[in-house]
């Protein structure tokens, strides 16, 4: 086996992981680092449940070779908030009833975060939100309440940014 060491920062913590060249970032996050909030489904970048942030940008971890992210910083759902300190997106998803089975939700929240972070303080239209999350499938909600949640969170983030 031609295992190599991967240096990767996940949610602010440095990790050294022995990986095989064909392992995807998803496999490394779930099987080696234990970030189970990153979900697994289609493995072909069609459903979006595996979405994480790579240097701040949403990507499908299921088709990214882990060896390609040497030295990069990855943020998973566990890295943006916890039950005591929810991220505004996490808070809004609960409040707006945007969560049903929840399996797509980590990916959905990170997809939205990446989009909102592109233009700090932005208040995107519902159509812009719709477009931004189109790469993450949700079979439960019909998306309306997810769009509500992203819009609500964007408003709050913009407001708190303006205050600072």
């Amino acid at each position: 086996m031609n295992r190599k060491i991967l240096n990767i920062v996940v949610n602010g913590e440095s990790h050294q992981v022995l990986i095989e060249p064909h392992w995807t970032l998803l496999q490394v996050l779930r099987n080696e680092i234990g970030m189970m909030g990153t979900k697994e489904n289609c493995l072909e970048a069609e459903c979006g449940v595996c979405t994480v942030l790579l240097d701040g940008k949403a990507i499908n971890s299921c088709i990214l070779l882990a060896a390609q992210v040497e030295g990069c910083s990855v943020t998973t759902i566990e890295g943006i908030g916890d039950p005591e300190h929810l991220h505004p997106l996490q808070e809004a998803f609960i409040e707006c009833g945007a969560v049903q089975c929840g399996y797509c939700i980590p990916g959905m929240i990170l997809t939205a975060k990446s989009f909102l972070d592109e233009n700090p303080g932005c208040r995107p239209s519902r159509d812009e939100i719709r477009e931004a999350i189109a790469g993450t499938l949700c079979r439960c909600t019909g998306y309306r309440k997810i769009i509500d949640a992203v819009a609500t969170a964007a408003d709050r983030i913009a407001l708190s940014g303006a205050k600072q």
Binding site: E78, P83, Q90, V99, G102, Y103, P106
Partner: peptide, 21 residues
């Protein structure tokens, strides 16, 4: 009443364990 679901926090934080996990 429109109360938040009991399993919401676990699901938005990635802590909810699914059979796949």
């Amino acid at each position: 009443h429109r109360l938040p679901r009991r399993d919401g926090v676990g699901k938005v934080t990635g802590k909810h364990v699914y059979a796949a996990d």
